[in-house]
Simulated scan of single mutants.
Amino acid sequence: MSKVFIVTGASRGIGFAIAQALIQASHKVFLVARTEKNLQELKTQHATSVDFITADLADWKVAPKVIESTVKAFGKIDGIVVNHGVLAPITKISESSVEEWRHAYDINVFSALALVKEAIPELRKSQGRVVFVSSGAAFGAYAGWGSYGTSKAALTHLSTHLAVEEPSIISVAVSPGKVDTDMQKQIRNDGKTGMAPEVYASFVDEYKNGQFLDPKQPGDVIAKLVEGATSDLSGKYFRWNAAELANFRAS
């Protein structure tokens, strides 16, 4: 039976891969991103199962529009993948500004909170799911990654609180690992001055050696989780390839 999902940050990378996986599984998908190009491409290819809005979710007024537009287009909401986020500033605390951190939190935390809060009534009806795309940086620390790591930690804990407060909604946080995306390109381009030299070098070397994941690998797992995550996973954090998620990976 076809379900309805919202995917944020859907115009490229992991979000685009998630959207494609859900479409291929015959679901209806409402896409959100700041750039239109790939969203319109998917809409053109799958006119009856895709709709989208181009907007900056850091503007919290966008959240009600996303929920209203999804329900208007497809009649319900069965799940949300909160995938959007920013890494910048890649700067040590002593050299960063509070405003830079505030902007990162507006995107990585508060926009997610606004969207999920607006969706709760619909998700209660469907006994739906929310998958938050987290990061291993939520549990470790890289020099220069303070705003990103701490905001991803907050996002991960938001998932836990949602699970406690809304037992009918399954909520899971997932780290996709090191994926060949524009964010990794940003690390290579902008991270040299803010990161520890050996850590920066390790990211560059792994890219050169072809060790990064294809977005489709974690994307497929995340798509399967928002479609069918079980209640025993709710409130927990997992790496995309954790043993507990074996049933959600392609054999």
Rank of each mutant, 00 (worst) to 15 (best):
A19V: 08
D51T: 10
F203P: 04
S69I: 00
A55D: 02
A229S: 10
L31G: 09
L42A: 14
F16T: 02
D78A: 13
D205P: 02
E68C: 10
L39K: 12
N38E: 05
P176C: 15
G15L: 05
F110Q: 05
T8L: 07
E95Q: 13
S96Y: 05
K43W: 10
H84L: 05
A63K: 04
F203M: 06
L22P: 03
V199Q: 10
G15N: 12
G177A: 12
F52A: 11
A119W: 00
L225W: 03
A243S: 14
A88T: 06
F30W: 04
S135C: 08
H46C: 06
G15T: 06
A119G: 08
Q186L: 09
A246N: 06
A17H: 02
S251Q: 09
K185D: 11
K37M: 10
A88S: 12
E227V: 13
W145K: 00
I90Q: 03
V116Y: 01
Q24M: 07
G177E: 03
D59M: 09
S171W: 03
Q24P: 00
T230C: 09
G79K: 11
G146Q: 02
H157K: 15
A17R: 02
K61M: 08
S202K: 15
V109P: 01
V131F: 03
Y207C: 03
F139E: 08
T181E: 01
H157S: 14
D51A: 13
I169K: 05
W240K: 06
S251E: 02
W145E: 00
V86L: 12
P215N: 14
Q217N: 10
S168F: 12
G235A: 15
V29W: 05
W60N: 11
G191S: 13
V4F: 09
G177Q: 08
S97F: 06
F30M: 05
V4G: 13
I93H: 10
S231I: 13
A154N: 04
A114D: 01
E41D: 07
L162P: 03
F110V: 13
R124W: 05
A88Q: 08
L115A: 09
G228W: 08
K178S: 14
K72E: 09
T48Y: 06
Q211V: 11
I18A: 14
A21F: 00
L245S: 07
V32D: 05
V164R: 14
P167E: 06
T193S: 15
T160Y: 13
V174S: 04
S168Q: 15
Q40F: 07
E41A: 14
K208R: 14
A17E: 04
H161P: 04
S97A: 13
G146T: 02
E227F: 07
E95M: 08
T150W: 02
R239P: 03
K92V: 05
G219L: 03
K192I: 11
A153E: 00
A17F: 06
F132K: 00
M195V: 13
K185L: 13
F110G: 10
H46G: 07
I14A: 05
F212N: 06
V131P: 01
P121F: 11
T160C: 08
N108T: 02
V133F: 01
A138Q: 04
S134N: 07
V174K: 02
T160E: 09
Y148M: 08
Y237H: 15
E165Q: 12
D180P: 04
P176E: 04
K92E: 14
D205E: 08
K37N: 14
Y237E: 00
T91Y: 06
